[in-house]
Write a protein that binds this DNA or RNA. Structure first.
Lengths: 230, 230
DNA sequence: TATTCAGAAAATACGGTGTATCGACATGAG
DNA sequence: CTCATGTCGATACACCGTATTTTCTGAATA
C-alpha cells in the first residue's frame, strides 16, 4: 500500500459559496437554457445534495436574481463614457452582447426588479451620465424609454434567433418558411401587407437593426435632453 | 324509485374543444399567474382527466401560444385608424390594456413567435396603416422599433406592479422601501445618482409614463416615415 | 338481438421538479 | 470522554408534463 493506491479521502465536500453556485447555474443556463437549470442539477455539478444549496440561497427565484446580477457585471462599462448619448448607446450594446452570450437573459430581463449591486451600479453609471441634462423627471423618462426599447428589441432578437435555430434554417429562409404554417396563412390572402413584408422585405442583420432603432430612440430622447437651440 | 331519486347519469363528459380549453387556461392565469396554469388544473376545471387535453393540444407550450393569440383578439382594434400614428398609438395602448387585464401576457409577449391568426391580423392591420409611407425596410423598422418599446415598457410596468402588490405598498412607498435592501444599498453612498432619483424623482402614473415614452418614439419614427418638408 | 370492434376516455406510470422535515454525524466545548 | 450544536444528506411530499396501458362505450355487423 503506497501513497498512490491509497484511496482518496471520501471527497470532503468542497466548500460552497454563492459565487460558485451562481457560476454553475449560469453555465447550465448557457448550455441548455433556463429550463435546464434545476437546483438538483446545480447541486450535482458541485458534488452536493440538493438541500445543500439552501444554505446559500433561499429559493430558486433568488438564484435567478443572482444570475441576472452577475451578468450585469459584464454590462457595466469599464471606462466612463464620453457623453450621455455614448453612455446610453454603450449600455444598450453591452446589454445586447451579454444577452447574446447568455440567451436566457432575454427571458429574465425586465421580468423582475433588478436590485443587485451590479444592476444598481449600471443604473448609477447611466444616471450619472445624464445628470443635470434636464429636470430629473425628464432624465428618468429618457432612461426608461431607452431601456424599454433595449429590453424589447433584445427579447425579439433572441426569440427569432431561437426560432431560426429550431428550424436549422437561415434567418431569411426562416421568415419565408417557418413550417408550412406561416406560408399557408399568408397564402390565404387575408394578410396582404404582411405577405409583402415577408416576401419583399429587405433582410438586414440583427446588429444594425438594433443599432438603427436605438439611434432613432436616442434621437427622440436628445430632443428632450439637449433641445436644439431655436 | 321515482324520477326524482333516480341518480343522474354519470355526467357524460362535456364535449371539449380548444376554445374552452384556452378560455379555462386564461382564467387560471388571470387568477394566479402563468405558474398557476397546469394541464392538470385546466383539465380538472373541465371535469376531465389530464390526458384528455392532448386530443386538442400537443404540448403546454402550444397552449401558451393559443392563449397569447386569443388575447391578440382583444388587441385588434375594431375600427380602422385615422392615420399611421394613430394606428401605432392605438395598438400600443390596446396591447397595454390587454396586459393589464392579463398580466401573464407580459411574461409571454415577445418571448415566442406570434403566428396565430389574431396576431397576424394585428400585424396586418399595423402594416396596412403604414403602407406606402416609406420604403418597406423603413416601414418595417418603424414597426419593430415601436413594438420593442411597447413590449419593454409593458414588461417593466407589470413587473413593478407585481412588486408593489407583493409588498402591499403604494408605488411611491415601494420605491422608497422595497424591504430594507434597497434602502441599505442606497445608504452606502455608492449610488448617489440613483439615490437622488429614488428620493427626489417625481412620481408619475404609469399610463402617462407609457404614453409619453410612446410619443417620443413615435416622434422619432415620424421623422423617417413622414420627414418634415425642409 | 347479440357480438364484435374501433375509438375515446381514464387510469396508471415515469422521471422530473422545488422544497420541508428529520436523522446521522462531525466538530468543538466542558 | 461526553455532550451539545449545527451542518449535511437522505428521505419524503406534492406536484408537474407526458407516455403507455387499460377500460369502457357506442356503432357496425352477423
Amino acid at each position: 500500500m503506497t501513497v498512490w493506491d491509497r484511496p482518496e479521502p471520501p471527497a470532503r465536500p468542497a466548500p460552497l459559496d454563492r459565487e460558485r453556485i451562481v457560476a454553475t447555474a449560469i453555465a447550465l443556463a448557457d448550455e441548455g437554457g433556463l429550463e435546464a437549470v434545476s437546483l438538483r442539477k446545480v447541486a450535482a455539478r458541485l458534488d452536493a445534495g440538493p438541500m445543500r444549496l439552501y444554505g446559500y440561497i433561499s429559493t430558486k427565484e433568488e438564484l435567478f436574481d443572482l444570475m441576472v446580477d452577475e451578468v450585469h457585471g459584464e454590462i457595466l462599462p469599464e471606462e466612463p463614457p464620453g457623453d450621455w448619448r455614448e453612455a446610453l448607446r454603450v449600455r444598450a450594446h453591452r446589454t445586447r452582447q451579454a444577452a447574446l452570450r447568455h440567451e436566457w437573459l432575454a427571458d429574465l430581463l425586465g421580468g423582475r426588479p433588478a436590485l443587485g449591486p451590479n444592476a444598481l451600479a449600471v443604473g448609477e453609471a447611466t444616471l450619472a451620465a445624464l445628470d443635470g441634462l434636464a429636470d430629473l423627471g425628464t432624465v428618468l423618462r429618457a432612461v426608461e424609454t431607452v431601456s424599454a426599447y433595449v429590453i424589447g428589441a433584445i427579447r425579439r432578437e433572441i426569440t427569432e434567433l431561437r426560432a431560426e435555430r429550431a428550424t436549422g434554417l437561415s434567418e431569411r429562409e426562416w421568415q419565408r418558411a417557418h413550417g408550412p404554417h406561416l406560408r399557408r396563412m399568408l397564402a390565404t390572402g387575408r394578410y396582404p401587407a404582411l405577405a409583402k413584408a415577408v416576401y419583399d422585405g429587405p433582410d438586414s442583420d440583427a446588429e444594425t437593426s438594433f443599432a438603427t432603432g436605438l439611434d432613432w430612440v436616442l434621437d427622440a430622447v436628445a430632443v428632450r435632453l439637449a433641445p436644439p437651440r431655436a
